[in-house]
């Protein structure tokens, strides 16, 4: 279990309880269960307290928690017959973007998402979920495929942002993102999106220009990272708390602004403390969103999507 900075006191108590139990296992006859149970209760109270009202910066930390379920976990658990399809037919296959065909509850779909990796080796392989132009061009290709064969598209968003590298720029990072957003707006099939962790700027928009957008309770979606915003507007990257506050990047604020359609509740203590429950809840949300769109003609799906984005944000926080 990885603890976040603000969870340190919790880590201490949970650690103590664990220590007590370990001691008892070694010395038979020692009865520690009562004390350990008291510590458990104290920890549970503290957890409830900490997560009761997470401030925006803490939410950013939870959204980036390394133990949160990632794209791969959702695909493994929610879909059957997942068949990854690789490459942009131009330059390379981007491992920061997973994508392919699969069945959701028996129904064939196309699923696309950012994958961050879960240990040092896979994180490097996945480039920490930061896609290069090839990743967006692979997504464009898969969305085209879905459009031609009438398959709904499900995107799972979890990226710090598009990769700021030399090669990525030379190969047209901006153009790739713009075309991916454009493709999202063109396809005549249902497109639903779930922000499962970080929705980082243009790299997220390129997948999340959808008919329906859901966000996990402690995920974030923002035009810039709080650190980046702080260093530009406050001239001090340490002001990320203030920036996180000002940017209104939490699922709760985004629902108020009318940018997202629904919030998927996370278990107490965040998705990392109840991975299976979180995955199941996301699965349910996807099914509900797809059901809402079922029976709509391709033209209507395209028109709805365009109208949704044209109307977005017209009322600000008063929406």
């Amino acid at each position: 279990m990885n603890y976040l900075e603000f969870e340190k006191p919790l880590a201490e108590i949970e650690g103590k309880a664990e220590e007590l139990r370990a001691m008892a296992r070694q010395n038979k006859g020692m009865d520690v269960e009562k004390e350990a149970a008291a510590l458990d209760r104290k920890a549970a109270d503290m957890l409830k307290d900490l997560y009761k009202s997470l401030d925006p910066w803490r939410k950013c930390q939870v959204a980036r928690h390394p133990d949160r379920p990632h794209c791969r976990d959702y695909i493994d658990a929610l879909f059957t017959e997942y068949t990854p399809l690789a490459g942009d037919r131009n330059f390379a296959d981007d491992h920061a973007v997973m994508g392919g065909m699969a069945r959701l509850d028996g129904r064939p779909v196309v699923v696309i998402g950012h994958e961050k990796g879960h240990d040092t080796k896979t994180r490097i392989e996945r480039n920490f979920g930061m896609a290069r132009p090839e990743g967006y061009r692979k997504a464009i290709r898969l969305m085209d495929l879905a459009h031609r064969f009438g398959l709904p598209v499900i995107t799972l968003v979890d990226t710090p942002g598009a990769y700021p590298g030399k090669g990525a720029e030379e190969r047209g990072q901006a153009e790739a993102i713009a075309r991916s957003t454009q493709k999202c707006l063109e396809i005549g099939v249902p497109l639903v999106s779930v922000i499962i962790g970080e929705g980082g700027s243009g790299g997220a928009v390129a997948f999340a220009t959808a008919n329906r957008i859901a966000m996990l309770e402690h995920s974030i979606y923002s035009v810039i990272s709080p650190e980046g915003c702080a260093s530009i507007l406050w001239k001090d990257a340490e002001k990320m708390r203030e920036a996180a506050e000002a940017l209104r990047l939490t699922a709760q604020d985004l629902q108020k602004l009318g940018v997202i359609d629904r919030i998927v509740a996370e278990p107490l203590g965040g998705a990392q403390r109840g991975r299976a429950d979180t995955i199941a809840a996301v699965g349910k949300a996807i099914e509900t969103m797809l059901k809402e769109l079922s029976g709509r003609s391709p033209e209507r799906l395209v028109r709805d999507r365009r109208e949704k984005f044209l109307a977005m944000g017209q009322k600000g926080l008063a929406a």
Partner: peptide, 10 residues
């Protein structure tokens, strides 16, 4: 914030 980001799809 996010509303400026939403100008990309808009």
């Amino acid at each position: 914030g996010i509303l400026s980001l939403m100008q990309m799809p808009r």
